[in-house]
C-alpha cells in the first residue's frame, strides 16, 4: 500500500509551532478531527492512551503517534514537521521534529501494521529525513513522502 492511499495532500503540515509533546499531539488531533470529521477529544485520548504504554518516538527525531478509532472507515495519516524539536521520550532520547500520525479503524489488521512499518522505515532513512527537514512547503513534503514510499513498495 503506497502512502498516498492514506496521506492526503492537505494532511501535511510543514512547519507546526508547538512547545511540547502533548501540545504536538493535541494540535495534530485537532487537524485529524477536521480531516476525518471525528471527535477531537476521542482522537487525542486514543493517542495519549497509546503513549502511556511507551513512547512512539522511534529515534532519529521521528515520532509516529498512532491508535485505533472504532468508527473510522479507512487508515488516515497526517504528517507534520515541527519548527522546534520537542522531547518525545524517544528510544534514543533525541528531540522529535518529524511526526507522522496514523489512525486506523478497529479492524484494519495487517494493513495497520504494514503502514506503521513502512512509515517507520521511511522516516528512519537519514536521507529522507534530511530532505523532509529541508522541505519548505507542504507540496514538497507530500511529494517526498509519497514518492519514496512508492519506490519502497516496489
Amino acid at each position: 500500500m503506497p502512502l498516498s492511499d492514506l496521506l492526503a495532500p492537505n494532511a501535511v503540515f510543514p512547519s507546526l509551532a508547538v512547545t511540547s509533546k502533548k501540545q504536538a499531539i493535541q494540535e495534530l488531533s485537532a487537524q485529524a478531527a477536521s480531516l476525518t470529521g471525528h471527535d477531537e477529544r476521542e482522537i487525542f485520548e486514543t493517542l495519549l492512551r497509546r503513549e502511556r504504554l511507551g513512547s512512539t518516538g522511534v529515534g532519529g527525531g521521528v515520532a509516529i503517534p498512532h491508535g485505533k478509532l472504532p468508527k473510522l472507515d479507512k487508515i488516515v495519516g497526517l504528517f507534520a514537521r515541527l519548527d522546534t524539536p520537542v522531547d518525545f521520550e524517544s528510544l534514543d532520547g533525541e528531540p522529535v521534529d518529524l511526526i507522522f500520525l496514523l489512525l486506523a479503524p478497529e479492524a484494519a489488521g495487517a494493513d495497520h501494521l504494514k503502514a506503521l512499518a513502512r512509515i517507520a522505515r521511511l522516516l528512519r532513512d537519514p536521507e529522507v529525513a534530511k530532505k523532509l527537514r529541508g522541505a519548505r512547503d507542504a507540496g514538497a513534503a507530500y511529494k517526498l513522502l509519497t514518492a519514496t514510499a512508492a519506490s519502497d513498495a516496489a
Binding site: 504504554l53 511507551g54 513512547s55 495487517a110 501494521l113 506503521l116 512499518a117
Partner: peptide, 23 residues
C-alpha cells in the same frame, strides 16, 4: 537497533494491551 523501526514498551505494560493494538 540503529537502522530498524521499532516502538519501545516499558516492562510493566500488559501484553494484552500490546496484542490488542497490533493484533
Amino acid at each position: 537497533e540503529e537502522s530498524s523501526a521499532a516502538f519501545p514498551f516499558k516492562g510493566d505494560v500488559r501484553i494484552g494491551a500490546i496484542a490488542d493494538m497490533y493484533e
